[in-house]
């Protein structure tokens, strides 16, 4: 059962059959040109296996957000390879990447980013709507996702009527409604108190176990990172080190 990441430890993931779900090779990202150019990533190598729960940590400016944007197909590397399920994402155009996101990715943001004045159900339905599901199917899947995050009874509430923790749960429901392969969470607990944070982390850990969604999460907090199986530390645009999270030991065979 392959855990893990980082070119330095690539050889430590022998159980993975075939290629990892995500593979970054020599990924660089440069913003701007000429004298003002800033290199945010300086050649990142990273492998992530399907079913892993990865926490990405590092100080501001270390390149972790840039890496997450690239992993989420929201941005493309300046140079290097990003292979996701065999696709060379760096050579896909904008719309192709959007279709990839639609099919395989779910996003959870620090600021929840729910549509205001829109019911929880409609928010969760949104990605299904873009996928072109029929109304009945859409409703059923959205309700199932809300059920999974424990907010089935709250389906007709708008974000304004929900607490921060509940809003983040709705956001998670939206992210998993399409049954994605990968859930990307950008500081999902950044706006929540510690009790709510732990609830959200437990929810993410549950989703990682069943139905086995690969979770990639950026966080500042060690306690949150501890829920992950693998912790990747970024520093100065490079992967500094990769360690096993506490969850490593609890893993079900």
């Amino acid at each position: 059962m392959g855990a893990a990441a980082g070119s330095a430890v690539a050889d430590k993931a022998p159980q993975t059959v075939g290629d990892p779900l995500i593979r970054l090779r020599g990924v660089t990202k440069t913003y701007g040109t000429g004298a003002t150019a800033f290199q945010a990533l300086k050649g990142v190598d990273l492998d992530i296996a399907a079913g892993d729960f990865v926490a990405v940590m590092g100080p501001s400016g270390s390149g972790k957000s840039t890496t997450m944007n690239i992993l989420g197909c929201l941005d493309v590397p300046t140079d290097g390879e990003f292979i996701f399920m065999g696709h060379h994402v760096e050579s896909l155009d904008r719309d192709q990447r959007a279709l990839l996101r639609r099919k395989y990715f779910g996003f959870v943001f620090q600021g929840f980013n729910l549509l205001a004045r829109t019911s929880a159900l409609e928010n969760v339905e949104l990605p299904l709507l873009y996928r072109g599901d029929a109304k009945a199917e859409r409703r059923e899947m959205a309700m199932a996702a809300l059920d999974q995050v424990g907010l089935k009874e709250w389906w007709d509430h708008t974000p304004g009527e929900l607490s921060g923790g509940q809003q983040q749960r709705v956001a998670i429901a939206r992210a998993i409604a399409t049954k994605p392969a990968v859930l990307l969470a950008d500081e999902p607990t950044g706006n929540l108190d510690s009790e709510r944070s732990i609830e959200i982390m437990e929810l993410l850990a549950d989703l990682n176990k069943n139905p086995g969604i690969t979770v990639l999460m950026v966080t500042h907090e060690r306690e949150m990172a501890a829920f992950a199986r693998t912790i990747v530390h970024f520093k100065d645009g490079l992967v500094e080190r990769v360690e096993a999270g506490h969850a490593q030991g609890e893993r079900v065979g």
Binding site: R94, A98, L99, R101, N113, L115, Y130
Partner: peptide, 16 residues
């Protein structure tokens, strides 16, 4: 703008 960002992130193509 943020709403558009959300839509794009969850997989809306530019044309949509």
């Amino acid at each position: 703008t943020r709403e558009i960002g959300i839509r794009l992130a969850i997989g809306a193509v530019a044309n949509e």
